[in-house]
Amino acid sequence: MPDQSTVEHVNATLTVAASATSVFAILADPTTHAAIDGTGWVQQALDPAPLTEPDQIFRMNMYHANHPDGAYRTINRVELFDAPQIISWLPGYEKDDGQLDFGGWSWRYDLVPHDPATTEVTLTYDWSAVPQPIREYLRFPPFSPGHLTASLHHLAELATRPPQPSTSGRPALPR
């Protein structure tokens, strides 16, 4: 068993009864992230455009009772985008001077189709790039590992719902 003080990521895997393309479309839609999130911290997408490429920025309203402001905003930068296999992003924030700063942790989803209607999804939270000063005041991971499993179950629920009519002009996603 690895020494927990050297572990710098956690992950969970779930097989979802949906195609990799359908699951990926949900993950690439920031408006679904609040419904996927297992902590309840993600509140609302401020940039509802679908994620389509690395370096794309999207913002989210967040809430955490232990955050100094309670309600806060994250600025996320897409790190990996390889539809429909991998999507990941780095959360950060916007400084007073408009510059973006990222804390060194990331969210990554890896999708492996088992067949046309079944996909294995692995969610990884990685904090290996977090600088020491941040590690001195934040505990990693900042949630229980069950959060990842809950998030994957929420994703599976979204992916297996019958499609709902789209009001955005974009193709309807399973809900």
Score class of each variant (00 low, 15 high):
residue 2 P to V: 08
residue 3 D to A: 08
residue 4 Q to H: 03
residue 7 V to D: 01
residue 7 V to P: 00
residue 8 E to P: 00
residue 8 E to M: 00
residue 9 H to W: 02
residue 10 V to I: 08
residue 10 V to H: 03
residue 16 V to A: 08
residue 21 T to V: 11
residue 23 V to Q: 09
residue 28 A to R: 05
residue 28 A to V: 06
residue 28 A to N: 07
residue 35 A to P: 10
residue 35 A to L: 15
residue 36 I to Q: 11
residue 38 G to I: 09
residue 42 V to Y: 04
residue 44 Q to T: 14
residue 45 A to G: 13
residue 46 L to Q: 15
residue 48 P to Y: 08
residue 48 P to D: 10
residue 51 L to S: 04
residue 52 T to A: 13
residue 52 T to I: 04
residue 54 P to Y: 01
residue 57 I to K: 04
residue 59 R to V: 06
residue 65 A to C: 10
residue 65 A to N: 13
residue 67 H to V: 10
residue 69 D to C: 05
residue 76 N to D: 10
residue 81 F to Y: 13
residue 82 D to W: 01
residue 88 S to E: 01
residue 90 L to A: 10
residue 92 G to L: 07
residue 92 G to F: 05
residue 92 G to A: 06
residue 93 Y to V: 05
residue 99 Q to C: 04
residue 99 Q to K: 15
residue 99 Q to A: 15
residue 101 D to Y: 14
residue 101 D to G: 11
residue 102 F to G: 03
residue 103 G to M: 08
residue 104 G to M: 02
residue 111 L to D: 04
residue 112 V to K: 12
residue 114 H to K: 14
residue 116 P to L: 09
residue 118 T to P: 03
residue 119 T to N: 12
residue 123 L to G: 00
residue 124 T to R: 06
residue 125 Y to C: 02
residue 126 D to F: 00
residue 133 P to F: 11
residue 134 I to E: 07
residue 136 E to A: 11
residue 138 L to A: 13
residue 139 R to W: 01
residue 141 P to R: 02
residue 141 P to K: 01
residue 142 P to I: 04
residue 142 P to N: 06
residue 142 P to G: 07
residue 149 T to R: 05
residue 153 H to N: 12
residue 153 H to K: 12
residue 154 H to C: 07
residue 154 H to A: 12
residue 156 A to C: 06
residue 156 A to Y: 07
residue 157 E to P: 00
residue 157 E to K: 15
residue 157 E to F: 07
residue 158 L to T: 12
residue 158 L to Y: 13
residue 159 A to Y: 09
residue 161 R to P: 02
residue 161 R to Y: 07
residue 162 P to I: 06
residue 164 Q to E: 15
residue 166 S to W: 11
residue 167 T to F: 15
residue 169 G to S: 08
residue 171 P to K: 10
residue 173 L to N: 14
residue 173 L to Y: 12
residue 175 R to F: 14
